[in-house]
Each structure stands twice: as structure tokens, then as C-alpha cells.
């Protein structure tokens, strides 16, 4: 799970793995590891601390990744703009692995995502999902889609 801070990486993971959600923002320090079975595949989710003004993504946490979920906040356009540079960091470290994109907080009234961005992501071969960790919207599809690509 890669993306800017406070976009909902942990929330998506927790919703998917444990079906829980909390509105409270708790920053992730380092990386949190969770595992879940998708069909017959055991998926180990590395919920990596978000990129923030103090620290870049720690690329050590990306090593060995078989697929990437880029997460952006649909109410903060800068977090979606950030995905391209995050991709460069990622591809350096792990190569051209399968990618899905979660545009999270789709339930929020301030949602503002340009269709150009979605088209750009699709052109890179990324599946884009409007997700809501809060409502559970597309959370399952997001992970299942990635697993499907990785297999």
C-alpha cells in the first residue's frame, strides 16, 4: 500500500483484512504487515507509512513486493498528483509489478478527481477504483483485481 500520508492506506487494509473502520486518523509508523486469503492466494499486505513532508517512502519496505496498491485521497488532488513520482520510486526498487489505484474517500462531499487523471492511469495499464474504506465501496474489488493481475 503506497501513497501520501492520510489517504487511507491503513483504513483500506483494515477494512479489507479485518472489516473494521475508524474515522480517527492514526499515522502509520514504518510498516504494518497483515495477511489475508484471497481465494487460494495468501496475500501479505505491507501497509507502508505514507509519504509526508518529513520523510519520503522508505524503499526498503517495497522490496519483494509482487504488486502495488497506490492509494490517493479523492478530496486532496495533490495526493493523486503524487502517484507518478511514487511510481518512479517503486519501479526502481521492485520493477514493473502489477498496479491498482485506489482513489479513496469516495463517500466524501469534497470529492474532486479529474477524468484526465483517471484516463492517464488507465493508459499505464492500472486499474482505477473509486473506493471508500468507510462504506466499503470497491475495497474487495481493489484487492481482488490486484491479486488477479499478480497471478
Amino acid at each position: 500500500m503506497v501513497g501520501d500520508f492520510a489517504v487511507g492506506k491503513t483504513s483500506l487494509t483494515q477494512k479489507f483484512v479485518n472489516n473494521v473502520f475508524s474515522d480517527k486518523y492514526l499515522t502509520t509508523i514504518g510498516v504494518k504487515i497483515d495477511s489475508v486469503m484471497v481465494d487460494d492466494t495468501k496475500v501479505i499486505v505491507w501497509d507502508v507509512a505514507g509519504r509526508d513532508s518529513l520523510s519520503p517512502i522508505n524503499a526498503n519496505y517495497l522490496v519483494g513486493a509482487a504488486g502495488i496498491v497506490f492509494v490517493g485521497d479523492g478530496t486532496r488532488p495533490s495526493t493523486i498528483d503524487a502517484m507518478s513520482s511514487l511510481w518512479e520510486t517503486t519501479v526502481d526498487r521492485v520493477g514493473d509489478v502489477p498496479v491498482v489505484v485506489a482513489l479513496n474517500k469516495h463517500d466524501h462531499p469534497d470529492w474532486s478527481v479529474s477524468s484526465e487523471q483517471i484516463i492517464e492511469f488507465s493508459n499505464r495499464g492500472w486499474d482505477v477504483f473509486n473506493t471508500s474504506a468507510k462504506e466499503g465501496e470497491n475495497v474487495k474489488s481493489l484487492f481482488e483485481s490486484l491479486v488477479h493481475k499478480m497471478n
Partner: peptide, 25 residues
């Protein structure tokens, strides 16, 4: 140990902050 899966062990490597199975950093 889940975090060992997929790790490249041919090189020095460090995971500076990760949860233990007991949930501690």
C-alpha cells in the same frame, strides 16, 4: 513470519520499523 515472504536475502537489508507478531514495534 509474513514479513520474510518475498524478501531478498542476498544483501544487507533492514526493516527499520515493523510490527512483531506480538504487535510491538
Amino acid at each position: 513470519i509474513d514479513f520474510l515472504v518475498g524478501i531478498d536475502i542476498s544483501d544487507n537489508h533492514e526493516l527499520s520499523m515493523i510490527s512483531s507478531p506480538a504487535g510491538d514495534p
